[in-house]
Amino acid sequence: MENPLVIVERLRGYYVGGFGVVHGVDDVSLTIRAGEGVGLVGESGCGKSTLAQLITGVTGPVLHYQGGTVMVDGFNVYAIPEETLRTEVLCKRLAYIPQAAMDSLNPVKRIRDLLRDVVKERTGRRPSNEEVFTTAGEHFESLGLPRRVLNLYPHELSGGMKQRVVVAISTLWNPKILVVDEPTSALDVSSQKLLVKTLMLLRHRGTVKSMLFITHDIPVARQVCETLAVMYAGQLVEVGPVEEVLDSPRHPYTRGLLSSIASYEPHAGRRARLECIPGRPPDMRNPPPGCRFHPRCSLAQPRCAQSEPPEVTLAGKRMLRCWRFSGGG
């Protein structure tokens, strides 16, 4: 792993609307190096999709950037004009596949027609069907999708195929960074494995250098990434090498989360009793003071309710946000 491609520093982003102000992402710092796959895991509502959106710089009408920096391959996403963001970052360096992307395939267009529109947006020239067939077709086939898929309508494809088509379209121009949000949640187990295989193939070949893979399914994240980042209530609570974090989780939330998932472990045999974390995730309009996990934490101390623990890096590899691991604890 080499130099960092994506540097996020103290990023904050809130949703502002008639419902009040919802803290989507609060003080997140993350680095993705070239050749690294980072898995971002957490429960629904923890802010992982928000973080992905903020990294791309395309915030919506309700989501507002509040502070911090995001550097994508040398470009400061929030300091450059929108047009530069679009032409230099989003078209060339970063590809973002949001949740339920396969539903965004235009149902009345064949895949090749959609591709022609995409190419026109990028290059200003609308290619002919044959051109699309040859160039894009090659890329599709290299990912295991038969070329004839280009002539089909989205409803003629299975869910797994649609998702792979979306991945293929997003990686046509060799983006250095691929950000995928929950690509496997609507798929059955076999399609899921195929999609993971496709993503690994892209990384192996160097088509895509780094990947940010967002999911709530931790076993899937394990298959895809080298670094695992656990998110809770808009903040990263633990980041580290994936095997280490899964084998010896340090943060109480990570521990609680891992002991509450019923994963299939053929070599471990039947599992001991699962423990769930009491309470529920906080209302992000009013996050709890101090450490956001403290109301549900069995190891909470008075300090945890008073002040927010900072991000602390242990031995250069594990990041933790917990008073037990920073000064005095």
Partner: peptide
């Protein structure tokens, strides 16, 4: 089916 299920402790 079982081999396609992602596992926590193993990598495909």
């Amino acid at each position: 089916l079982l081999s396609d299920v992602p596992k926590l402790r193993e990598r495909w």
